[in-house]
Design a protein around this nucleic acid. Structure first.
Ligand SMILES: [Zn+2]
Ligand SMILES: [Zn+2]
Ligand SMILES: [Zn+2]
Ligand SMILES: [Zn+2]
Lengths: 143, 143
DNA sequence: GATAATCCTCCAGTCACTGGAGCTTTTCGT
DNA sequence: ACGAAAAGCTCCAGTGACTGGAGGATTATC
C-alpha cells in the first residue's frame, strides 16, 4: 500500500508531525489528499520529497537553497548545473565556517593555556573575554 | 568624561542600539541611570560588560554560558574553575562541530565528484539528497 | 532659537519551528 | 458492533535573539 497518514510520514522521514504541517503551510510541500474525515493521506512521492528536505536541512542548507533545489530537481532532463552550483556554494560556506571555527578553537585553547589561573581576577579567560585587545583575533573581518 | 549615551555605547561596543535595550529588557545588563529627560546614560563599567557580552557572543557562546560567565566574573577573588570549565566545554563543542563540518564537507565534495552529471536525472547531488542511503553518513548519530 | 540628530516607548515581525486547547476521526480489542 | 484509546484536525500562542517602524520627546549644534 502507498497511503501514509501524517504520523506514518513523520515516522518514515524523521520530521515531526507539526513540522510537516508547517511545511505544507509555507508551501514547501503540497497539500495532500484528504480522507472523508479530513485527514491527510500521503503517497510515496511526498515521502521522497520530505526525505529530500530533511536530508538537505540536516546538512545545513538554507531554506532558500532548499526551495531552489526542490524546484530544480523536478524536471529530470533539465541540466543539473544550477543544483551543482548551490552545492558548490554551500561547500564553500562550509569551508569558510571550518576555517573560522579552527581559528576560534585556537583562541579558546589560548585562553585556557598558561594554566592555573586560580582566581577570576587573574583568569586569562575573563581577561580575554573582557577585552578584545587581548585576543588578537579579528572576529568580523573575514565574514 | 565617562558618560555615554546609548548611541555612544553602541558605537563603542559594536552592539546595535535596539539590541542594547533588548539586553536590558532581558536582564543581561542592568538598567542604567537616566537624564532629566529620561535618556539612558552609561559609564565605562557598562561598556566593559557589553564588550564582554559582544565578544563572547561573537565567539558563539550560548546565552546561558554567557550569563553564567557574567555572574562568575564579578567577584575577582573567586576561583575561576567554573569559568574555565565553560570555556573547556565550548572548546569541546567547537571541536565536535569542526568534525561534523569536516565530514559534511566530504559528503558535499563527494556529491560533486565524478563530474559531468549533465541532467538532473543523472545528478549525483540530487540522488544523494533524495535518498540518504546513497549518502552513507549518519547525520544525527554523533549529535 | 531653530533644526537636525538622537532618544524614548510600544508594538509587530523575523525564522523555523514547537506546543497546547479543544474537538473529530480512525483504529483496535473484545 | 461498540466503546475506548490513539491519532488526527484547526487555530493560536510562544520560542530565541534580535530587528525595525510609528509617533513623539529630548538633546546637540549652529
Ligand atoms: Zn581561569
Ligand atoms: Zn577577540
Ligand atoms: Zn549534477
Ligand atoms: Zn545523508
Amino acid at each position: 500500500m502507498s497511503s501514509y497518514s501524517i504520523g506514518d510520514l513523520s515516522a518514515q522521514s524523521g520530521v515531526k508531525v507539526p513540522t510537516i504541517r508547517y511545511y505544507e503551510q509555507i508551501g514547501l510541500i503540497a497539500a495532500p489528499a484528504r480522507t472523508e474525515g479530513n485527514q491527510r493521506r500521503y503517497g510515496s512521492a511526498e515521502l521522497n520529497r520530505l526525505r529530500f528536505i530533511a536530508h538537505a536541512r540536516d546538512m545545513g542548507f538554507a531554506m532558500d537553497s532548499l526551495k531552489s533545489m526542490l524546484s530544480l530537481s523536478t524536471r529530470k532532463d533539465a541540466p543539473c548545473a544550477k543544483v551543482d552550483a548551490i552545492v558548490e556554494q554551500h561547500l564553500a560556506e562550509v569551508d569558510q565556517r571550518i576555517k573560522q571555527l579552527t581559528r576560534l578553537r585556537g583562541e579558546l585553547a589560548g585562553m585556557l593555556s598558561g594554566g592555573h589561573h586560580g582566581t577570576v581576577g587573574e583568569c586569562r579567560v575573563v581577561e580575554v573575554l573582557s577585552d578584545h585587545d587581548h585576543c588578537g583575533y579579528e572576529h568580523g573581518a573575514a565574514a
